[in-house]
Design a protein around this nucleic acid. Structure first.
Lengths: 76, 76
DNA sequence: CAGAAATTACCGCTGTAGCAGTAATCTGCT
DNA sequence: AGCAGATTACTGCTACAGCGGTAATTTCTG
């Protein structure tokens, strides 16, 4: 439900790519193993900071933008 | 801290753009006024689904991608 | 400047996210 | 097939996100 669960696939793909288990990624990101599983399961109610930690550990970025693909954020 | 707080600016900018007050946006998104304020304040520990509701109401999208700008998700 | 509207900042309450631990199921490897 | 490691799925617990209400402060408008 919602495009959020694509995050699940992206996270899983990149975790595998990095050769990490869920537990290893969890430790690396400083979160619990449960939440890594939850994210990969597509759970929508994870906290943003928790997701961010996991994305950081995988070198992934999150951006918010309008419907016209214009980039509106992005760290400087 | 972190690039998350750019979300704050994007949300606020687009809320103003849409001519909405925080309360109006909250009602429109189906969330409490408090969390709209929190998001615009840059609070990192908001829930992903809550943020998504607010972004949806503003017609904004969230994407996750690798460091090379390659788009990895995006709903079809 | 005054009054109105919006924003910021508290409050207490309720539901649940995140945690570790454990067990069961699913994988892949030889 | 048999074993090891990984994943999935629970449990109980604690901390806090999100909620509405309200008050103080800031911003807008005449």
């Amino acid at each position: 439900m919602s495009r959020i669960d694509n995050i699940a696939e992206v996270v899983r793909f990149h975790r595998k790519e990095a050769g990490l288990t869920q537990k290893q990624l969890a430790d690396l990101a400083g979160v619990g193993k449960t939440v890594v599983f939850d994210i990969e399961k597509g759970k929508a109610s994870v906290r943003l900071d928790t997701l961010e930690k996991v994305l950081d550990a995988l070198n992934l970025k999150m951006t918010v933008h309008g419907p016209l693909m214009k980039r509106e954020n992005e760290k400087g």
